[in-house]
Nucleic acid binder design. Structure first.
Lengths: 222, 222, 222, 222
DNA sequence: AATGAATGAGGGTTCATTCAT
DNA sequence: TATGAATGAACCCTCATTCAT
């Protein structure tokens, strides 16, 4: 049977998945290798055939589930078009989707917070490959918008952080309060964008936007 | 001797402080009672004179450092006066101060994220006694502002979350990236308020505000 | 192919050789089957095709490398001629050669010392098939020499042990100090035989000693 | 009660003794900390209160039981008087006593042989502090005896090794064959000294040998 | 014949907790 | 009160052994 070969090829992935669930559930230190093994349907020893130590398992697991985020961030950087406001809105929506819906991305934040001090490389990597580029992109967009007269110049400093904050905040609430957090995601996103643009636009930018449809909410009259 | 008595009375507090530092450094599971003891300048056994178990020590430590936050939140709730916009601005400033400068409050977030699943009472308590009231207060302010025509009604749903998000986001960044995060707090706060009000106010509300001084940045003319 | 068949026939020997090196390097308990396998150029599982357990592998390895010694001892027993002194000298030279130069024989001593308690059959076997016969041969030679008036009768008891001791001692030093032990083997052997036959004292020394009391046991007169 | 304090002061020594017995019985690798603990009448964990790791326990145990040997060697170096032959005889008797009767010293040899490769510092130390000085002392005695005309000059090279060999050989036999080795120690020592001083041959035997060729190196004149 | 993934029993080590002093 | 020696339950990791391929 190919059965065996198929299992073998899948094992590392299965173990990484089990590791994700286990570490997300209890944190690095409180998770036992046996927990991971049980979730993966193997015995303790089997894990060591694929991963050298508990630390390595954790690192590779984080690396595994970060890849998507990192790659997507790059794609997203290139894909957007339109006015600065439109592009920024698109970015915020993407970001929100990531944060609100992708449990893997969300738990990455938990890993950073919980165990970042013990795995500084992981933190650096996330900073270098995800956080810093994403922030830079937003900052660039803001600068471009300001240069074009679309955005008010007051928001230049640290505007990027404030723009992504609501999405990350939702992630954090879900990490902490879990299911008890009942949130209407559509409303959350709509309000977020509403805030964002209402506070951002110059009169010229508003007129520009007013001709489009996003947020075309009589704010033009402001 | 008084010296001894004084020491005795201070011991629990010293231990709680040591526990805070130790747990903040490595998380609940990875922290040893001996770490705490060493920081407190006592031996392992002494801790058990004051705290039944490691779990209880953690819980009481979190409770100890939460009290201030909880109490302050109540005080703050009562203390603000003025237009809704002014009160909201005051709240945001207070919140930002808490998040940006108070390391104890910041680390509480870490404890919630890291060990909340193992200490659900702590999470509930924070939710009940701090998070929910604070959110309710903001929501009430928003509702009042909308009713008075100061605020645009579009931001009613989940507006509170979005308003506090930037402050919490800064806390989170500091929890994760620690010292490498160079942030100009004044600029961060200014931008945050700028966003907030620019997106929030009706023409009437703006006029109102324009006569005050907060954020009186020509936005009235927008 | 013949190649394959040849390999097949050689496998057990290759594994035994690898086992010898591995066990000699780290001892029975600290050696892993994988160490042996790696040295033999096969995988762990393959060893189990030829040897039932780690214990059996060890036993058969010791047996394998003991055979030569045992057989040679027999041959040597028969081959020597001449006066008793000449035959004894020949024996000592043979013994010295074995001990000084044959690494396999040397490591057998290590195995006896290190793991003899866990493999008593191996010890007994060595005793029965090598040590006891060799000692008996020397003792017989001594008895014959004494009977012929060639040897002094004082050395009858335990003379055999003392005669083989220098050779074994050299082996032991090499087992312990390894390369750091710089020894001129020719000189070592010459001195050994010299001692054996003539002792330490010059005629003057003997007279001296005879007059004193330490060991002044009229041996001159013996 | 002082009971507790007394036990506490004795514990390390008791553990070292237990470790000696356990390691001597099964070797370093095959001995479990629990074996040592059981012998010492404590639990596994207690050992770690006094010794950092299994390796350290082993090292300190060897150090502990080596001290006597090392110190005594120094004392012995100074204490002997008389002719060179008398002093050498005294040394041999001392050495024999050590090897034949002191089980601790004997087992040190086993540790060197079994685990020396994993604990090279222990081997070096024994070499530096015991073996080399002892050998040097014998060599010096031999040189002095030769210079005085007491000893035959032929035995200058490696004479020391050959002189101590019989004692060490007995130790080795006991290490390997244990109780099954029935040895009359007095006879062994007497024969050893006899060989040492007078060699094997009777005057007749000497004459005989002088006419042959084996070792006919002017020794005939002895 | 050989591979190598997988098992499972242990062994070294840690650490929360206890308790005699 | 406080100490610190001691316990004992886990936990991480290793490795002899098995077995489907």
């Amino acid at each position: 049977m190919k059965e065996r070969a198929r299992r073998k090829a899948q094992r590392p992935g299965e173990i990484l998945e089990a590791a994700f669930e286990a570490f997300a559930e209890r944190g690095f230190a409180a998770t036992r290798m046996e927990d991971v093994a049980a979730r993966a349907g193997v015995t303790k020893g089997a894990i060591y055939f694929y991963f050298e130590t508990k630390e390595r398992l954790f690192e590779e697991m984080v690396g595994h589930y970060s890849q998507g985020v990192l790659a997507d961030a790059g794609a997203m950087l290139a894909a957007t078009r339109g006015t600065c406001a439109e592009r920024l809105t698109a970015f915020v929506k993407y970001m929100f989707g990531r944060c609100a819906q992708d449990r893997h991305s969300r738990e990455m934040i938990r890993f950073m917070v919980s165990d970042g001090k013990c795995f500084p490389q992981l933190v650096w990597r996330h900073y270098r490959e995800f956080f810093a580029p994403a922030m830079a992109m937003v900052s660039d967009l803001l600068a471009e918008g300001i240069a074009r007269g679309e955005f008010r110049p007051e928001i230049a400093r640290h505007g990027a952080e404030i723009i992504v904050a609501p999405s990350v905040f939702l992630s954090l609430m879900r990490l902490i309060f879990d299911d008890s957090m009942e949130i209407d995601e559509d409303a959350y996103l709509a309000t977020q964008v509403d805030f964002l643009l209402g506070g951002l636009l110059t009169p010229a930018g508003r007129k520009n936007l007013g001709e489009g449809k996003a947020c075309g909410d009589g704010r033009a009259s402001i």
